[in-house]
């Protein structure tokens, strides 16, 4: 059932109702939940409108045209930063290739026999890595991991040692991806790998971001479920 005062809320809060109608509306309000709700919703609006001068509404005039140089400038900057990103990716591929040469695969799988502890050092490379930090297990907590973020001239080397403990799951390989988020909100997938339950896996990944520009590192399954997280 529509209330006979249904559309008076607007004119009421703007103070435009004639005195007699305003009085009638105010008598009606306590008995009508719907009109009361409308008044509550509109009550703050006159104050907000008061911040905008009438001239701003009345004289929209010819708006100052957007400079024609704006779009070309931002588009070329966007293209430049894409190129930078691509050359950073090329550098990562070169770095990855080097790791393959040195460490045969770059991924070292060892049997899980002595529980999970921080890896002493990265595999078969002469560079020392930063101390490993324990990542937070997310969800069921069936994955544990340690990561070290080592600053390199080209960005950050990420050494991850993780173990998928496996539960009721009928074995099999699971694919993982590591996703790095920068402090200014960019999200970058830095690598993918597969692992078997019960095995400890060490992977070395890379990003062009400096360690201080990394806000968080997340390990996800290929289904997009986050399993490990490190927040700076």
């Amino acid at each position: 059932m529509t209330c006979q005062y249904a559309h008076l809320g607007g004119a009421y809060v703007l103070g435009s109702l004639a005195a007699s109608e305003r009085a009638a509306y105010e008598r009606h309000l306590p008995d009508c939940a719907e009109c009361s709700r409308v008044v509550r919703e509109f009550a703050g609006l006159p104050g907000l409108m008061g911040r905008v001068p009438l001239e701003a509404l009345e004289l929209p005039g010819e708006p100052e045209p957007v400079p024609e140089t704006l779009l070309p400038a931002v588009v070329s900057e966007v293209r430049r930063s894409q190129r930078r990103r691509r050359s950073a990716l090329a550098a990562i591929l070169v770095a990855a290739a080097a790791i393959v040469v040195v460490g045969v695969t770059g991924v070292v799988v060892t049997s899980l026999d002595d529980g999970v502890r921080p890896p002493a050092a990265g595999p078969t490379t002469s560079q020392t890595t930063a101390p490993a930090e324990r990542m937070d297990s997310i969800g069921a907590g069936s994955v544990t991991g340690w990561i070290s973020l080592t600053e390199r001239p080209w960005g950050t080397r990420l050494d991850l040692t993780c173990t998928y403990l496996g539960d009721g799951y009928a074995g099999g390989w699971t694919s993982y991806a590591m996703v790095v988020r920068s402090v200014d909100g960019r999200v970058e997938q830095v690598g993918t790998w597969r692992a078997e339950p019960g095995r400890q896996v060490h992977v070395t990944l890379a990003t062009a971001l400096a360690p201080e520009d990394i806000e968080s590192v997340v390990v996800r399954t290929d289904e997009g479920v986050s399993v490990l997280r490190l927040a700076e």
Binding site: G9, G10, A11, L14, S16, V38, F42, L45
Partner: peptide, 10 residues
């Protein structure tokens, strides 16, 4: 006017 103020504010 009444209904327009209502819908305008909405």
């Amino acid at each position: 006017v009444k209904s327009r103020t209502h819908y305008a504010l909405r």
